[in-house]
């Protein structure tokens, strides 16, 4: 399983519906802010974030710089089982990218 240093995921499945909470470490700089000297801080923000599950792109997010620093996303999709793997990938406006595969843990009974 490919690990990711920037993406953290908490997930669970209940009655076939997987709930994914995803936190990405990223500065999300808008490109509109200025530093103390009045120079614009160059933009650096995630533009695309996707989540794949068993061949489907269950979430295809296009983000702007106005998403908070260290973006948090929560979403849910059906047709999932305990132990399934999801893949989350992101690309920012400078071309930097990361992805990781995460197993939805088996629910404790």
């Amino acid at each position: 399983m490919a690990k990711s240093s920037t993406i953290q995921v908490r997930s669970s499945v209940k009655k076939g519906v997987a709930t994914i909470k995803c936190l990405v470490s990223h500065p999300m700089e808008t490109g509109l802010r200025k530093d103390k000297k009045g120079n614009l801080i160059p933009a650096k923000f995630i533009q695309n974030l996707t989540c794949e599950h068993s061949g489907d792109t269950v979430l295809d997010a296009e983000l702007n710089g106005s998403i908070s620093t260290n973006p948090y996303l929560k979403f849910a999709f059906s047709g999932a089982n305990d132990g399934d793997t999801i893949k989350i990938s992101w690309v920012d406006n400078t071309g930097e990218k990361d992805s990781g595969e995460f197993e939805i843990p088996t629910r404790r009974r």
Binding site: M28, D56, T57, V58, D60, A61, I67, F77, S78
Partner: peptide, 15 residues
């Protein structure tokens, strides 16, 4: 953009 399997509910943090 949501897949037919995706629930119509999203939570995120914005500026």
């Amino acid at each position: 953009n949501l897949n037919p399997r995706t629930e119509g509910a999203i939570t995120t943090n914005i500026k």
